[in-house]
């Protein structure tokens, strides 16, 4: 449904999006995950035809987003980061206007608007002026606006930003409900959101794709190592010698815990190994006190941080508007 290949967008010397390629199949929810300024919004704007790409191609439903922009625009619904609302209009009039400019024929407008309001639970607020709605309801109007013409592709830029937890859950449910019928791309910098709502996640950092996969696969695949946390009372030097002798230890990190003789120890080993027994035996065998020991599994959050905080140019250079 969506094919993006070698898409690049630069503003002068700043490269906001750098050689991005990915595909989205019909009915899928794709999450765009990345820190602010990573290039999520820029990529979305290129897909919607709002911005031209510097180089590369993007096709939606077989149409080139630049050369056949009108065809593409008919087939997409787009919710920018700030919902594009007219505060002085009421909900129904606004949705009718959007339906009209999206090219819905006059006889279908009423039913399409009704359907969009039904989906987003706005029916009770149809006559309310948009400026009087709460942030959560405005966001719903924004989503209703993006689906009112029943587009093949729905692009949502940070759809849950600024909402309270209850509203976030509602909006996520709403998005999940849209999938199947529509192909969805949503961007977020919140990890649980990506892992809970999306079928696949594209992690994007400084304009480049760091990883593309399902949330589950990302977790296992990128979890290159097992990690064990220990808390030990003893001599740091002696402890280091002891643990380094254990077979399979890849990385060792020892630091004192404030206001005590206790040491916080992090041991990393190859994935699939379990060093907990050996560690416990070694520490206790040397006469040190083992206070705590636990295996840590990497969360998507760790992966995200790992992927996006690698060494590289300072973030300032790529901090183009998101």
């Amino acid at each position: 449904m969506i094919e993006v290949s070698h898409l690049t967008k630069s503003y002068g010397k700043n490269v906001a999006v750098n050689d991005i390629s990915f595909d989205v199949s019909k009915g899928e929810i794709l999450g765009f995950l990345g820190p602010n300024g990573a290039g999520k919004t820029t990529t979305m704007r290129i897909l919607t035809g709002y911005l031209p790409a510097t180089s590369g191609r993007a096709r939606i439903a077989g149409f080139d987003v630049f050369e056949q922009s009108m065809e593409v625009r008919r087939r997409i619904g787009y919710l920018p980061e700030n919902p594009p609302l007219y505060p002085d209009m009421d909900v129904q009039a606004y949705l009718e206007f959007v339906a009209r400019i999206k090219g819905i024929s006059g006889s279908d407008i009423a039913s399409r608007v009704d359907h969009a309001m039904e989906m987003t639970n706005l029916k009770d607020h149809r006559a309310a002026l948009i400026k009087r709605l709460s942030r959560g309801y405005k966001q719903r109007v924004g989503i209703a606006q993006a689906v009112v013409h029943n587009p093949d592709v729905v692009i949502l830029d940070e759809p849950t930003v600024g909402l309270d937890p209850k509203q976030i859950i509602e909006v996520r449910k709403l998005i999940k409900g849209l999938a199947g019928e529509h192909t969805i791309i949503l961007s977020t910098h919140i990890l649980p959101e990506a892992s809970q709502t999306c079928d696949r996640v594209v992690i994007i950092n400084r304009g480049k794709i760091a990883a593309v996969d399902t949330p589950e696969n990302l977790t296992t695949q990128l979890k290159g190592s097992e990690r064990v946390h220990l808390e030990v009372r003893g001599e740091p030097e002696a402890l280091r010698d002891t643990i380094e002798q254990i077979e399979g230890v890849m990385k060792l990190d020892i630091e004192p815990i404030d206001d005590s003789d206790n040491l916080k120890v992090t041991v990393e080993s190859e994935s699939g190994t379990d060093l907990r027994g050996k560690l416990a035996a070694a520490v206790v065998g040397k006469g040190m006190e083992l206070l705590e020991l636990k295996a840590v599994s990497l969360s998507l959050e760790d992966i995200f941080l790992q992927l996006t905080t690698e060494e590289g140019p300072s973030p300032k250079e790529v901090a183009v508007s998101a």
């Binding site: 919607t48 709002y50 009108m70 008919r74 997409i76 919902p83 594009p84 609302l85 007219y86 090219g103």
Partner: peptide, 14 residues
């Protein structure tokens, strides 16, 4: 300023 230009420019309007 309202951002509604983005709506107009991404709609099938010339």
């Amino acid at each position: 300023k309202r951002g509604t230009m983005e709506l107009l420019m991404t709609s099938p309007l010339t």
